[in-house]
Amino acid sequence: MLDELDKKIIVIMQEDFPLVAEPYREIAERLGIHEDELLGRLKEYRQSGKIRKMGAVLRHREVGYAANALCAWIVPEERIVEIGKMLAKDAVVSHCYARISQPGWPYNFYTMLHAHTRKDCKVLAEDIAKRTGLQEYVMLFSTKEWKKISMQYFKD
């Protein structure tokens, strides 16, 4: 379980990461703990999967991926794992989830596609449809980003 120090570390790691030679020493000083204690716990979070990855989040528009499309698919229940594993390996798929469907909304599988243009997104989706044999899908293009932030855990 997470103790109070874990939560403090998680909160501070969500703030601006110091771009200096020894960033963890600086963060540890602000926390009032030793650098080794901080690095030890961060490594444990990664081993236990609490941290999936450590690195930079890019602004996709600026790096040329202006179009993104959430695709909702109808996948037969018995094929979900097979298709999920297959598409997870696909570089153009950034998010891939099975979700419950709802009355009037039969779609139960979602892929997030990023590409340079909307047309490219359509081509990518058609290619996925061909490779998986899935015919029923809908492309949900975003027209306005009302909010996009990284989650601030344990801030309340």
């Binding site: 997470l2 998680i10 790691m13 969500q14 703030e15 601006d16 990461f17 771009l19 961060l42 979070y45 236990s48 999967g49 609490k50 941290i51 999936r52 990855k53 450590m54 690195g55 930079a56 989040v57 890019l58 602004r59 600026e62 790096v63 990284s150 989650m151 855990y153 344990f154």
Partner: peptide, 16 residues
Amino acid sequence: QGFIRRIGPFFDSTKL
């Protein structure tokens, strides 16, 4: 220049 939004860890919300 705005190419990088943030540098930091990606947490698994379920694991937290």
